[in-house]
Design a binder for these strands. Structure first.
Length: 431
RNA sequence: UCCUCAGUAGCUCAAGGGUAGAGCAACCGGCUGUUAACCGGUAGGUUGCAGGUUCAAAUCCUGCCUGGGGAGCCA
C-alpha cells in the first residue's frame, strides 16, 4: 500500500491510499466519526462509518486521543463540503503511539502558555502555514539572488568585535579570549564582494538589547547581499525587485495559507503592481514636524514616526539620505553634502517598520580611516577591512533584510515571535 | 532600565469584603455529515509568593516574583 502526502491527495481521487500522521481532532455523531489527520503537508478529514468498518477499528478510532500518531488507510473521495476538496473514507486505522493529555486544546490560549509549548504549538494549522510561507520566502530570496548572479558566502558567527560598534553583543569565551556572536555579516560580505562580485550571506544574528516589543527578537535571521560596482540607486533598485519577486511568489504559492491567516491579499497585490515610494530624510522630517511630531533634523526616527511615514503609502517606502552622525561609520556621504549619507531604509506598510537597511559603502581609504577614528573604533581590528580600500577599491553597496519582519509583514502577523520556529526573546530561552 | 496592564481548575475567563463558578480539555453516556460539532453527567482549587488590615480577604494595603503591551535600540 502506497503512503502518500496530504498535499498530493488530489492525484489519488477514487484510489486507496495510506496516510501517516497525527490525529488533530476527532468528532463523532453516533455511528459516524470524523478524524482530522495532519501529516505536516496538510490536514484532511477522515470519515469512518460504523457499518463499513470492523467493530475493532470502530472502537479503536473512538478511543484515539488528540495528537496520537496514526496510520490510516482509506479511499480518497472528492467532497464539496471539505475545505481541502477531498476526504478519506477510512477503511483501516492503526495507532503508532498514543498521546496522553495533550496540553494544547482547539480553544484559544494565552501567549505565555503557547510560547512555553512552542514545540507543540508548531503543530497547529496557523503555525504550519506561517512556517511554510517562511520557507518560501527564504527560497524565493535565494532563487532570485541566484538568478542575478549572486554567490552565497557564509559569514562567521563568532567574531572578534562589533561590526558596527553600537548595539550590545553577546559575549562568549574563545580559548581564553573574548568573542562575540555576530550582529551582522556585512563587513565580511564586503571582502567577499571584492572577491566574487555579487555575494550574500544568510544566517542568525544576535542582539543583546533588552528589547521588549513585537518588532524585536534577540536572535533573528538576516540576509545580507553585497554588490561590487553597484551604487546607492542600483542598490535600492535591487531591493525593490527582490521584495516584489518574493511577495509575488508567496501570492502564487500560498493562497490557502494566506487565507487561513486571514491576510488581506489585496494589500500585497498593491505592493507588486507599482514602484515603491521614495522620500529623503529631509522631506520626512519636514512632514513629521508639520504633523506636530517633536523631532529635530538630526534625530533618528522613533517607532511612531516610522509608522506615520509608512502610512503615507499603501506600499513600502524608501527613506534615504540620513544624517551621517546617526548612521554607521562605513556609509558613503552624499556628494556635496557630507552631513548625509547614501543610505536608505525600506519601511514596510501597515506599521511593520523597517525591513531593510542598506547603503553605499565608503570606498576611499582616507575617509574610512577618518571615520574609524571619529567613532573611536580600534583601528587594529579593522586592518583587514581597510585593506579592501587599499587593494583595488571600487564603489559597492549592500543591504540587510530581516527575515522575520519580512515574513510577519507578508503574513500579517501581530508579533515577530510567530515568524520564527523557536523565538528567543528577553526572558525566554525555552523551549 | 522606564511606563503600563495582568496573575483564580490543565486551558480561556467570571466572581471586586460574606460558602470559588462557567465554557473547553479529561472521564462516562447519547446522536449517521460534523467543521473550535452538539446534548446529558462525573471529576477537577494552598485564587503567583510573603506580610498586613478585618469578625471575615481571590477581593483592600505593602513588598517581591512572573508574564503581556509599549518606550529606547534596531532587521
Amino acid at each position: 500500500m502506497k503512503t502518500v502526502l496530504i498535499r498530493d491527495i488530489g492525484q489519488y481521487n477514487g484510489k486507496q491510499v495510506t496516510l501517516k500522521g497525527w490525529l488533530y481532532n476527532r468528532r463523532s455523531s453516533g455511528k459516524i466519526q470524523f478524524l482530522i489527520i495532519r501529516d505536516g503537508t496538510g490536514f484532511i478529514q477522515g470519515v469512518l462509518v460504523q457499518s463499513d468498518v470492523s467493530s475493532e477499528d470502530w472502537e479503536l478510532a473512538a478511543g484515539i486521543t488528540q495528537e496520537s500518531s496514526v496510520q490510516v488507510t482509506g479511499t480518497v473521495k472528492e467532497d464539496s463540503r471539505s475545505p481541502l476538496g477531498f476526504e478519506l473514507q477510512v477503511e483501516k486505522i492503526e495507532v503508532i503511539t498514543s498521546a496522553q493529555d495533550y496540553p494544547i486544546s482547539l480553544k484559544e490560549h494565552g501567549v505565555d502558555f503557547l510560547l512555553d509549548h512552542r514545540h507543540l504549538w508548531l503543530r497547529t494549522p496557523r503555525q504550519a502555514a506561517i512556517m511554510h510561507i517562511r520557507n518560501t520566502v527564504v527560497k524565493a530570496m535565494r532563487d532570485w539572488l541566484d538568478a542575478q548572479g549572486f554567490t552565497l558566502v557564509d559569514a562567521p558567527i563568532l567574531t572578534p568585535a562589533a561590526c558596527e560598534g553600537t548595539t550590545t553583543l553577546f559575549e562568549t569565551e574563545y580559548f581564553g579570549d573574548k568573542a562575540y556572536l555576530s550582529q551582522s555579516g556585512q563587513l565580511y560580505m564586503e571582502a567577499a564582494a571584492l572577491a566574487l562580485g555579487r555575494v550574500y550571506c544568510f544566517g542568525p544574528t544576535f542582539r543583546a538589547e533588552k528589547s521588549k516589543t513585537r518588532r524585536h527578537l534577540i536572535e533573528f535571521w538576516m540576509m545580507e547581499p553585497e554588490m561590487a560596482f553597484v551604487d546607492h540607486n542600483g542598490n535600492m533598485a535591487l531591493q525593490e525587485e527582490m521584495v516584489k519577486f518574493v511577495v509575488r511568489t508567496v501570492l502564487d504559492k500560498h493562497r490557502n495559507d494566506l487565507a487561513l491567516l486571514e491576510r488581506d491579499t489585496a494589500k500585497l497585490e498593491n505592493v507588486i503592481n507599482k514602484p515603491f515610494a521614495k522620500m529623503t530624510y529631509d522631506e520626512a522630517i519636514d512632514y513629521l514636524q508639520k504633523q506636530g511630531h517633536e523631532i529635530q533634523w538630526g534625530d533618528d526616527f522613533g517607532a511612531p514616526d516610522e509608522t506615520v511615514l509608512a502610512n503615507l503609502h499603501d506600499g513600502p517606502v524608501f527613506v534615504e539620505h540620513f544624517p551621517t552622525a546617526i548612521k554607521a561609520f562605513y556609509m558613503k556621504p552624499v556628494p556635496g553634502r557630507p552631513e548625509v549619507v547614501l543610505a536608505a531604509d525600506l519601511l514596510a506598510p501597515e506599521g511593520y517598520g523597517e525591513i531593510i537597511g542598506g547603503s553605499q559603502r565608503i570606498d576611499d581609504l582616507d575617509l574610512l580611516l577618518q571615520r574609524i577614528q571619529e567613532h573611536k573604533l580600534p583601528e587594529e581590528a579593522f586592518k583587514w577591512y581597510l585593506d579592501l580600500r587599499r587593494y583595488g577599491s571600487v564603489p559597492h553597496s549592500g543591504f540587510g533584510i530581516g527575515l522575520e519582519r519580512f515574513v510577519s509583514w507578508i503574513c500579517g502577523l501581530s508579533h515577530l515571535r510567530e515568524a520564527i520556529p523557536f523565538p528567543r526573546l528577553i526572558n525566554r530561552l525555552y523551549p
